[in-house]
């Protein structure tokens, strides 16, 4: 697992790994908004927490499809799925790497951009804390979305549609935490809820993401599993037997199976 972590971080920092893109995107979003809104300092100060949070969220979204896509293309995801480490752990590591590469730099840069947006002084601490607490949730939720859409051709756009609604609670509590901090109000409730969302998603979503990955790896894909095609009807390798062909097919695992597709098709057709 530690080896995987080191490998992924190294890959991300290598040229073409996409590190820095999210950061640049964040910078551009935060620069563009004042041009759209106007230069009034009070207005900017009021909307700064929201801009910073939405910018961070979009920057996270930008790099999500890289979490699994590259590994899926070159087949190393299949190897990871059959490796002795649990797939849930792999997902958690991948999300952690995404956070280290995308989320953490955002946290570091956000106060600087807060200066541009005229964020009130008491809010800086809360901004860093809220992003530090909230961005891991963005990465984990994003890993789930990436796992759902990993096998798809044009998965990126679909993934945004799936992931953005899931980001709503994190965004609400994160931005609320900063604006309450800026106004000097008590921040206990949003702080606790934000932390709850992050810990809850970090604890549970890797399982959902791993389930989705297993389903995606199991799926019959003509390029990967040529031998799976001669099944009597269109479905994957037989669900209750051994995989029929070479190493590319190891990925699938059996979910609980009451009525097999074969039986279903026998009933329908």
């Amino acid at each position: 697992m530690r080896g995987l972590l080191a490998r992924d971080v190294a890959l991300a920092f290598r040229s073409g790994g996409g590190f820095g893109l999210g950061l640049a995107f964040f910078l551009i979003v935060v620069t563009l908004v004042p041009f759209g809104v106007g230069p009034e300092r009070e207005v900017l100060a009021r909307i700064a927490p929201g801009i910073l949070w939405v910018g961070a969220l979009l920057a996270c979204l930008l790099s999500l499809d890289r979490i699994f896509a590259l590994d899926h293309e070159d087949g190393s995801l299949d190897l990871l799925a059959t490796a002795p480490v649990p797939l849930e752990g792999v997902v958690a590591i991948k999300a952690l790497v995404h956070w280290l590469v995308t989320g953490l730099p955002l946290v570091v840069v956000a106060p600087v951009l807060g200066v541009i947006l005229n964020l009130p002084p008491p809010a800086y601490g809360w901004l860093v804390i809220s992003l530090l607490l909230g961005t891991p949730a963005l990465s984990v939720i994003g890993a789930f979305g990436a796992a759902l859409t990993v096998g798809l051709k044009r998965g990126g756009l679909l993934m945004s549609l799936l992931v953005l609604p899931l980001y709503v609670p994190t965004l609400v509590f994160g931005a609320e935490l900063v604006s309450r901090g800026a106004a000097g109000l008590s921040v206990g409730t949003p702080l606790a809820l934000l932390a709850g969302i992050t810990t809850g998603s970090a604890a549970l979503l890797p399982f959902a993401a791993a389930l989705a990955l297993r389903v995606n790896l199991r799926s019959p894909d003509a390029a990967r599993c040529p031998a799976a095609l001669p099944c009597p009807v269109q479905h994957g390798p037989p669900l209750n037997g051994p995989p029929r062909n070479g190493p590319a097919c190891h990925g699938w695992r059996k979910l609980s199976q009451a009525v097999s597709w074969r039986r279903f098709h026998a009933l329908v057709a």
Binding site: L148, G151, V215, N216
Partner: peptide, 29 residues
């Protein structure tokens, strides 16, 4: 988006479960 019926059913079910939790959270948020 997914061609294979079995895969689509599995993935959308997982999305529905996770989405329910987050829809509820969004409502409270």
């Amino acid at each position: 988006a997914i061609d294979d019926a079995d895969t689509a059913a599995d993935l959308t079910s997982v999305l529905c479960l996770v989405g329910s939790v987050f829809a509820l959270l969004s409502r409270y948020a």
